[in-house]
Design a binder for these strands. Structure first.
Ligand code: MN
Ligand code: MN
Ligand code: ZN
Ligand code: ZN
Lengths: 138, 138
DNA sequence: CATGCTATTGCAAGAAGTTGCAATAAGGAA
DNA sequence: TTCCTTATTGCAACTTCTTGCAATAGCATG
């Protein structure tokens, strides 16, 4: 069965609706797997839904991220990219050559706990971007 | 002596120049202390330098961050803010009420080391933004 | 299946951020 | 001081992102 239908109950339960626009965008994110910019999502999703607008893409991506169906990340230039929400992970990018490595969340787990107990906050996000110099560039 | 002049040798050594635009922007960042959006920097700096353009502000802020005189941070909406580079710190923001707390870098130190040894990267950045729910909101 | 409520979308206008290029002005050298 | 190189800026055109509002369409209810 269609991947996107799995999300319907999640939305309904919170009073939201599944629309053709949301389905198309979820399908794009799910199929591509990696990070996509709003414009890239727009280009892809438009193939399925020609009268989709960029406005809706921006609003939908933000909506999906807010409700845990997608994750956003900034890749250094101040622009957000999005991906389908799956396993928790982070990114490490070389400032010089742009090479990127995925970071397991388990590496940050104890730090997250320290942060939570010292601040009283409950951390919700696990999709950070770190910057550094890779072994070749440093 | 003027704060901004202290930066001159740092720039010269790398082949860059100190300009009235850079001075004005550094003065604004230094005087304000906290995070400012490019537009806010523009508004302030323009008081000293009426024919400054927004283009130059964007390019200058990026330049200053790239060379360690300023730090950038994204505050959740995908937009960058800037501040003068001083002590290393991070931020923790409540997704619900927007309340923010400063996080000491020392809390992340051992995690940074783990990350470095497991990835082979040398981490350059210490100005992250974490998201969560504050004690009132969670 | 028809109706009504309201979440969601598209449109239009505007704000924010980017880029190429020619003119300007730091600042090293003579 | 004057000259010269080239880093830096301003301008104009463009792309990306945001917002208010009226029209549309999910979907719950009867
Ligand atoms: Mn990711
Ligand atoms: Mn900060
Ligand atoms: Zn590298
Ligand atoms: Zn809160």
């Amino acid at each position: 069965m269609s991947v996107t239908l799995d999300y319907v109950p999640q939305l309904r339960a919170r009073g939201y609706r599944m629309t053709s626009q949301r389905m198309a965008i979820l399908r794009v994110l799910h199929h591509f797997g990696g990070h996509l910019s709003p414009t890239q999502v727009y280009e892809q999703a438009r193939k399925q839904l020609p009268n989709l607008t960029e406005t809706t893409v921006y609003r939908t991506l933000e909506f999906l991220a807010e409700h845990g169906l997608a994750r956003s990340a900034h890749m250094g230039n101040g622009h957000l990219v999005y991906e389908i929400a799956q396993h928790e992970h982070h990114h490490l990018i070389c400032r010089n050559c742009g090479n990127t490595v995925e970071v397991k969340h388990s590496l940050l787990k104890t730090m997250y706990q320290k942060l939570e107990s010292s601040s009283g906050y409950k951390l919700t996000d696990s999709h950070l971007t770190f910057f550094g110099l890779c072994s070749d560039c440093k």
